[in-house]
Structure formats: structure tokens, C-alpha cells
Design a protein around this nucleic acid. Structure first.
Lengths: 253, 253
DNA sequence: GAAAAACCATAGAATTTCTATGGTTTATAT
DNA sequence: ATATAAACCATAGAAATTCTATGGTTTTTC
């Protein structure tokens, strides 16, 4: 079910627009760009070019302007089934409702009336996200020992500390859990909001409230605990800063 | 994703019809009855009753006649979202195409024009089956020993023979594979086309070409091999006969 | 650049999974 | 119905896997 495109590009949906009208095509592109989460992989202006484009790029979504030669487009959609198993999501675009019936018959996901209406578009895209929930990054980690399976919600982990061969998990509720594996092994297993900042520490970005470059310390939201970071992992600290800055207004000097 | 109804009733889809018109409702019911795989769990004649019915029975599919008070039905569909997570498949029915646009906007799966057209209906139902493929009964069996995982396509298994604590699998290609488990354990693990016919045998119905009640023997298609069945498993032999007869013309005396 | 700590390979301990045995129950077939 | 045969079950020891401690090596810290 999960599309290759979605996997390698993270959470983004890829799409293709098939539209004779360059203006509406561009409008749509701009909107989707603003919206985020969508990436244009190709465009086409007629059904033949469109078929080729879809087969070449396997987009997650195909937008079709049905105003000119609708029947050819519907034919194209039927032909697509000959070649594809993972079928793209189809969204029709038209200045009238005349093609709505054929659209539903051809398994279209939605139908937009021109001129574009941001409200309608937003509704469709939200419905799409609801229906195709992207792998919300394995948010649970399993520590197993023999027949014991310990499932941790990674959102509950504040940070990890290396202790020779084993690793201690420090949880939000104050508990600590030990696992007999090196910190390095968890570096690759944990979701990307976990970053290594020190020889002995991996921390959950979601709990960092402060980065002090002078003292080389990160402060956590919970209990104002302080953890060191070091030169080796400077790049990770920078990306941490970038993520944190994204959602805040920086008070500069 | 798998609906509770679907699980306990095997492969059948449950449905509800909401239709003021008793005639079309009955027509639809009859068609679905003939088609098989569909089971009516309730009916309603208006949007209020319909809402209640859907929430009570959680049908897999809801058929809606939109000819009278379409807007009320669309409102009902919107309200449904407040209460349900596993949303039913919606199929609109109408004498005209006027509601097709609203239907697609409300996430309808399909839209049928009255009078009913068997071809259209069949197409929709096949599309539905394609999209919601029922658990096609784990057709592959895994024999594991330590870190060795041996996957068998159950379609390749002719029969199983007990050998004290272990079980021998006799395959289509002539090979035999041993597993250290009793025949009984496989009785429950294998798909339902496997039946126990003897203290020492389980066989794949798909390879049975003959049942001889006089000699208490089953003959297999491959190599004309003969396996005994016994009194204890007489009921299973009868259901085997029933299945085989279903797809053949019996020459009676 | 010295000290500390993570990392890695390995070997023995802990645990689980598998197979053989004998006794018990159930099924077969005359 | 009954003697015979074979599946079934529990169990115990064997085999395989998984885990943890040790010491040596490499990397990191300050």
C-alpha cells in the first residue's frame, strides 16, 4: 500500500497535473506549494502525454482538467488500469458539474469546480490525508529480552544515556529503563526526532527547551534537567536548533 | 480495517438500504441476494431512521436513494462522521445525474442510475471487492525451526500424513517435508479447503478427484494416489462431497 | 594529549525451542 | 465388540538461540 515515493521523500505526496490550460495548472501548483506536503513530479497537457507521464512517474495523485475532451480522459483512466496495480488518487477539475457522474464512475476521489476554491481544496486534501494516513513513524519502540516484550511510546522518552554496553532510557514519568544494547544501535532505530548530541546522550527534540552554545548544554522542558552536547555532534545540534526555531519567534540582539 | 461483521460471517458484506420507495428497495435486495456475498442487515425509509440504523448495525455498505430529499441524506452522511471511525461504503441511487457532484463531495463510492442496470451494478460490486480484498485466507503456511523459516504455498500441498509426533507434507511436485508437530495442530492452522478424513490424514480438497464410499477411499488427481477415510470423519467427507458436487454435473443411476 | 567512556568481539550463562520417550487415549478394521 | 495400531500428551534432556560480562581497542571529551 505504501508508495515508494512517499517512503523516500518522507511524508510528501507526489502529484501530476494534466491540463490544457496553463493558467489553471499554474494556479493549482502554487496553491499546493503553499499548502506543503505536496510535490509536483510532472505535468502534461493532453491525455496521451498524461498517460505516459503517469506511467513514468507513478504519482500519488493525478489532477485532471476535464473541461476539454473529458471522454478521452476517462478513456485514459480506464487504460491506466491495464498497467498499474497501485492506482493513483484521481481528482477531477471542471467549470461545471456535468462530468461528476462519469468521475464517480471512474473511481475519482474528488471533483473540483473552477474557479479554484481554497476552502474546497483544503477539505479534499484533509480528507485525503485522513484516508491515506502516512506511516506516522513507528512511534513505539520494543525492547525485548527472551520472551519479554517491552513497548515504549517514544513520545514518553526524554533522553537516552549510554552506560558502557547498555543504555538507560529516561522517561517522562521519571522512571528509567535499561536495555542491554549500545547507544549506537538506538541511534538508527529511533524516529528522526531523536538526535545524538554527545558520546553518551541521545535526546528527544520534543523536550528540548534551550540550547546553550556557550556552556554546551541542552535544557529539557521537564525538570529543567541539563544535558551536555559536544563538538562531534555539532551538526545535529544545528538541525535541532533549526527545527526548534521553525516554531518560534526568535528574540535577537 | 477489517470489519467485525466481515470476520464473523466469513466473506460476506453486510448492507443497509435507505429508500422511501419500497419497490426499488426490494429490487435491489433481490439482485444482491442473487449475486451472493451480500447480507442485508437492516432497512430504513428516511434519513433519521437511516442514521439510527447505520449506527446500530455498522453495515459495510449503505445504499441511499437520493431521489427524495437528497440534501437531508447528505446532511445525514456528514453527521455520521461524528460517530463513526470505520465508515461504511456509500452508494447513491437516483433517477438522474443531478446529485453526482454532491455524492462525490461526500465521499460516495459509486452512483447508480435508475432503473437498475445489472451490468453497472456488477461493475460496482467487482470494483468494491477489488478495493476491499477480503482476507484471502493465509494461503501460505510457515514451518519454522529455530531460525529456519520454511514457507509452503498451501495450494502446493496434496495431503498431510501423521507419523507419530511429526507430520509429513506430501507436495504436488513429489517432495515430502517433515514437521515436528502433531497432525491435530495443522487441522486448525490450515485454510478450510483442508479437511481431516482419517486418524492419519488431512487432505487438500482441491486435489480430490474421487470419493469411494464402498472402499472408504479418496483418489487424488495427481498420480491417482488413494488415501483412506474413516467413520469418525464421515461429516467432513460429506462436506467435501458437497463442495465437489457444486462444480460438477453428477451422473446418477 | 591524558583520561574517560563508548564500542566491538567473544565466551559462558540464561532461556527458549526442539525432539525423543513412554504412558494414555482414541481410532481403526476385522 | 474387541484386539490392534496409531495419534496424542506431558515431560525431560538436547540443541539452538539470546543475553550479559569481560577485556582489549577505538573514539570522544575537556
Amino acid at each position: 500500500m505504501t508508495n515508494f515515493n512517499l517512503v523516500i521523500l518522507g511524508m510528501e505526496y507526489t502529484y501530476t497535473i494534466i491540463d490544457q490550460n496553463a493558467t489553471s495548472s499554474l494556479q493549482l501548483q502554487h496553491y499546493l506549494e503553499d499548502y506543503g506536503d505536496f510535490q509536483c513530479v510532472a505535468q502534461a497537457t493532453d491525455h496521451e502525454d498524461g498517460l505516459n507521464t503517469i506511467l513514468k512517474h507513478h504519482p500519488d495523485i493525478v489532477f485532471l482538467n476535464l473541461d476539454h475532451g473529458a471522454s478521452l480522459y476517462f478513456q485514459m483512466v480506464k487504460e491506466l488500469h491495464l498497467y498499474m496495480t497501485e492506482f493513483p488518487i484521481l481528482i477531477g477539475i471542471s467549470s461545471g458539474k456535468d462530468h461528476a457522474y462519469d468521475a464517480i464512475k471512474n473511481d475519482f476521489f474528488d471533483y473540483w469546480l473552477l474557479p479554484f476554491n481554497e476552502f474546497d481544496m483544503r477539505k479534499t486534501l484533509l480528507r485525503l490525508k485522513k484516508q491515506l494516513p502516512k506511516e506516522h513513524a513507528g512511534t513505539t519502540l520494543c525492547l525485548k529480552s527472551y520472551k519479554d516484550f517491552h513497548y515504549l511510546d517514544t513520545d514518553e522518552i526524554l533522553y537516552l544515556k549510554a552506560d558502557n554496553n547498555s543504555t538507560d532510557f529516561f522517561m517522562k514519568d521519571g522512571s528509567t529503563i535499561s536495555a542491554f544494547k549500545t547507544l549506537k544501535t538506538f541511534e538508527s532505530q529511533l524516529p528522526k526526532n531523536f538526535i545524538r548530541v554527545h558520546q553518551s546522550y541521545i535526546l528527544n527534540m520534543n523536550y528540548v527547551s534551550r540550547i546553550n552554545y556557550g556552556k554546551s548544554l541542552c535544557t529539557l522542558k521537564t525538570g529543567k534537567m541539563q544535558l551536555p552536547f559536544s563538538k562531534t555532534y555539532r551538526e545535529n545540534i544545528d538541525s535541532l536548533k533549526k527545527v526548534l526555531s521553525k516554531n518560534s519567534i526568535t528574540t535577537l540582539n
